[in-house]
Computed example of a mutant assay.
Amino acid sequence: MARLGFEVDFLTKLGKDPFGQYIYKYLQNERIGTEHITFDEELNTGIMLKNKTKEGDPITAYYRKGSAFTNFSIEDVMDIDFSEVRLLHVTGIPPAVNRVTRGAVYHLMAKAREAGSFITFDPNMRPELWKNEETMIKVLNNMARYANVVLPGISEGEKLTGSRDKETIA
C-alpha cells in the first residue's frame, strides 16, 4: 500500500534487540509508519519461520513465547486517533498470543468501527498458538463480527462455520 502512495502505519511491539531494530528500520525505509510501534526493553522480538512447499502444508516453527509482543496490551494502543484511520487490517494471530493481547485487538477493532474505519480481518488460523480449537473458533468468529470484510481460506472458513460450501462460508 505504501508503494502505491497510501499512508500506511504498522502496529506491533518489538524487542530492543538487533532483529527488532532491523524490522523498525526496514519499515521506515519502505515508507511505512512506525509511530505505533512500541519496544520492550527486556524481551526479544519474536519470529515465525515457514518453509516453502510445492505440495501439502508448509512446516511452521514459532519462536514467540516470551517475546516482546507477548506484552502487547491496551496501553500500547490507547493513544491512536481513529478519526484518521480509513482502513484497519487485523489478523487472527495476535489474539492467539494471550488474553491481554486479545483484549488490545478487540479494543482496536471496536474503536476503529466506532470511528467508521473500514475493517478487514484475515483469521490466519494458527491452531498451535491457541489453548484449544473451541476457543480459537469462538474468538475468531467474534472478531469477524467487527469486520466489514473477512478473508478466510476455504479450509479456515470450513473450520469457522462448519460448512465447506463457499456461499455458506461467505
Rank of each mutant, 00 (worst) to 15 (best):
A112E: 11
F69R: 00
F72N: 01
G92W: 03
I59N: 07
R126F: 00
N29R: 12
T120D: 03
K138I: 08
L151G: 08
Q28G: 13
H36Q: 14
L27T: 04
E128A: 08
A110H: 09
K16M: 14
E7L: 11
V85Q: 14
A115L: 10
F118E: 10
V150D: 08
K25W: 05
P127H: 11
K138H: 10
T60W: 03
G153M: 07
G162E: 06
V149S: 08
A147M: 10
V77P: 13
N132Q: 10
D165A: 08
N51R: 04
S83G: 15
T34L: 04
I80K: 15
M125G: 06
M1C: 10
E156N: 04
T53M: 09
K138V: 11
G33A: 13
G20N: 02
I80C: 15
F10N: 09
I74G: 04
S163W: 11
A144N: 04
D76C: 12
R99N: 11
V8Y: 06
R102H: 07
A61L: 05
A147E: 13
G153F: 03
A68W: 00
L11D: 10
L14F: 02
G56K: 14
P94R: 04
Y146W: 15
T53Y: 09
Y26R: 03
D17H: 13
G20D: 00
A144G: 10
E7D: 06
R64S: 01
D165P: 06
R99P: 03
P58I: 01
I23C: 07
L14V: 04
G66T: 01
M48K: 07
M136W: 11
T91S: 07
L160A: 08
T53I: 10
G162C: 06
N141L: 11
L108N: 04
G157A: 05
N142I: 07
I119M: 11
G153T: 06
G46A: 02
T45K: 00
A104N: 09
V90P: 01
K16E: 13
E75V: 10
E75I: 11
R86F: 15
D81A: 14
V85R: 15
E156C: 09
I93Y: 00
E55P: 08
T34M: 04
L129T: 00
T45Y: 03
E158R: 14
D81T: 15
K13R: 02
E133V: 12
V77H: 13
N141D: 09
Q28F: 01
N29I: 03
K159C: 12
L49Q: 04
M48S: 06
A144T: 05
P152G: 04
G5N: 12
A112W: 07
F118L: 14
S117D: 14
D40R: 06
G66H: 01
P94S: 05
K16C: 13
M1V: 11
R86G: 15
P18H: 12
I119P: 06
T53C: 10
M48I: 08
H107N: 10
A2R: 01
S155V: 12
T45N: 05
K16S: 13
